[in-house]
């Protein structure tokens, strides 16, 4: 049987999620054995035409050209999976969605007229149908391997939608909000990173985006009672997943 064809695509991003594939050092040669890597520009100069069985898409849509490109990729892909905060929520570059992009262009470039960009940075799912979204800034290597394995087996990947708090409790990590009074997005953020920040005595800063049905209003009230100011609350929700609806709405309440 022919091996399934894998394509990896990049849009506006830092390359960190694609790099996570190459960071699977122990599994990389096995992955390359199980899949026909047909398109992965960061890793190979061999490019095979579509259609593709699985497309992994990194990055957000920020140009008119990329709006067209993602449609062409969707048309050639049986399964399309977006990986990482840029692809699932617009990434850190979605901070422009809360500002005037022309001001941004003038702040960075001497000749703003050379720059062509959209006013908003948006998720892949805002443009085409997406079969699965893998969260994270960056994605977790373990979840990525589970996703590839599940997709090859034709089953649903086991990626919990519960909160970061659940992950901390299971690991027996000390709550930084209770013990240190540190602001933490854990109660409203999806688990998956391996409770990295609380185990380093810092608050979660939301790399994995909002959990299912988050109660951000209640969290903000608690943080305000601990002394957080409206600008601090706004900044907390407005980072790598600023464009995710639940975080965007909550950040706007503190404008």
């Amino acid at each position: 049987m022919a091996r399934p064809k894998l394509a990896v695509w990049k849009f506006s991003s830092c390359d960190g999620c694609q790099l996570t594939i190459l960071d699977c050092e122990d599994e990389l040669l096995e992955i390359a054995g199980a899949l026909d890597i047909a398109q992965f520009l960061e890793a190979t100069s061999e490019v095979k035409d579509g259609p593709y069985d699985i497309s992994l898409v990194e990055g957000s849509i920020t140009t008119a050209h990329d709006m067209e490109r993602i449609k062409a990729i969707r048309a050639q892909s049986k399964v399309l999976i977006s990986i990482g905060a840029c692809a699932t929520a617009g990434g850190i570059q979605a901070l422009r969605n809360f500002a005037d992009v022309e001001d941004f262009t003038r702040a960075v470039y001497a000749h703003p007229e050379y720059i062509s960009t959209l006013a908003q940075s948006t998720a892949i799912a805002d443009h085409v149908q997406v079969d699965f979204e893998l969260r994270g800034c960056p994605v977790s290597k373990h979840q990525l391997l589970e996703l590839i394995t599940a997709t090859l087996a034709g089953r649903k990947p086991h990626v919990p939608r519960a909160s970061q708090c659940m992950e901390c409790k299971r690991a027996g990590a000390v709550c930084v909000m209770v013990s240190q009074g540190t602001a933490c997005l854990g109660p409203v953020t999806q688990a998956g990173c391996g409770n990295l920040c609380p185990s380093h005595r810092r608050g979660c800063y939301g790399c994995f985006g909002p959990k299912e049905t988050p109660n951000a209003v209640a969290l903000s009230a608690r943080l305000a009672a601990q002394g957080a100011t409206p600008p601090q609350l706004r900044a907390l929700y407005r980072s790598f997943n600023a464009g995710a609806a639940d975080f965007a709405t909550e950040s706007r309440r503190h404008d």
Partner: peptide, 25 residues
């Protein structure tokens, strides 16, 4: 595509700068 890091850092607490700029690469 441009991502405007220099612009989106304006007004942020300087303590947030390393977490944001790390996402350049």
């Amino acid at each position: 595509p441009p991502r405007f890091f220099e612009a989106l850092l304006r007004g942020r607490d300087a303590m947030e700068v390393p977490d944001i700029t790390s996402r350049i690469c």
